[in-house]
């Protein structure tokens, strides 16, 4: 194998600039998409457990659609198809926006991940013993009150590991957005490789970003679970 290593080129411009921009975009996109996905996902997950059949159907439909279409296809739909389906004025306004790729990526990633989170919420809530519902209802709490004060807080604590791992999933999935023009870290690495032919250095920068983030989240999760082990919270039953 004939390869000349040159790690210093990563620190040179324009490579370094690309790396920084890539990491920054990846982190921003991931955090924002995760936040949105949590809000939407918790909502969808909860209505899937509602007494109303209509609400349950809406939730299930959402989950099945956004879970079964590959993320890349969803990104393409939002990027290529969605603007064309808008009424003319909206389409023009959309195309004039700053950072359309980032915005599209944000929408695509959030809605996709929301479906996954909704699934985890549903299975989290299903794992709650039925007696908790009965006890709450028996004291006169309504369905909404029961979910708000008893079920969701309980389920949430049980689901924290899953929710944190969803962040890591979004973080890795953000790499796909390079196809619609988002300047995230994997795309930056590919660009550097194209310019310098030093693929190992370039891709290492990207890999390092993902691996360090993964390791950090895993460690944080361990600490969180330890802290939240305030009596009776996480799966002691």
């Amino acid at each position: 194998m004939n390869y000349e290593f040159d790690w210093s080129l990563l620190l040179q411009e324009p490579n370094w600039g690309w790396v920084i921009e890539g990491i920054s975009n990846t982190v921003q996109l991931s955090l924002m998409a995760w936040g949105l996905a949590l809000v939407i996902g918790i909502f969808i997950g909860t209505i899937r457990m509602a007494k109303s059949r209509v609400l349950r159907l809406v939730g299930t439909t959402y989950v099945e659609i956004f879970r079964n279409i590959p993320l890349l296809v969803q990104l393409f739909l939002w990027f290529f198809v969605f603007p064309l389906l808008l009424p003319d004025d909206f389409m023009r306004a959309w195309n004039r926006l700053d950072g359309v790729p980032f915005l599209t990526a944000l929408i695509g990633l959030s809605l996709f991940t929301a479906a996954r989170i909704a699934e985890q919420i549903r299975s989290g809530i299903s794992s709650i013993p039925k007696g908790q519902f009965l006890a709450a209802y028996s004291t006169g709490l309504t369905e909404v009150q029961t979910f708000r004060h008893v079920i969701i807080p309980y389920a949430f604590r049980v689901m924290i590991p899953a929710i944190a791992s969803e962040f890591l999933t979004i973080f890795k999935n953000s790499a796909l957005t390079l196809t619609i023009g988002v300047a995230e870290i994997t795309g930056a690495a590919k660009t550097i490789e194209a310019y310098t032919f030093r693929g190992i250095e370039a891709y290492s920068a990207a890999s390092l970003t993902y691996m360090l983030t993964t390791a950090s989240v895993v460690i944080f999760m361990g600490w969180l679970e330890h802290v939240l082990r305030i009596p009776g919270l996480i799966g002691k039953r």
């Binding site: 953000s174 890999s207 993902y210």
Partner: peptide, 22 residues
């Protein structure tokens, strides 16, 4: 753990670079 920490697309890029090299 190595493989699960990286996105698939990056692994693909890795191999596309390394396989001809090796």
């Amino acid at each position: 753990n190595l493989l699960r920490s990286n996105p698939l697309i990056l692994i693909v890029f890795w191999f596309f670079f390394l396989v001809p090299l090796i």
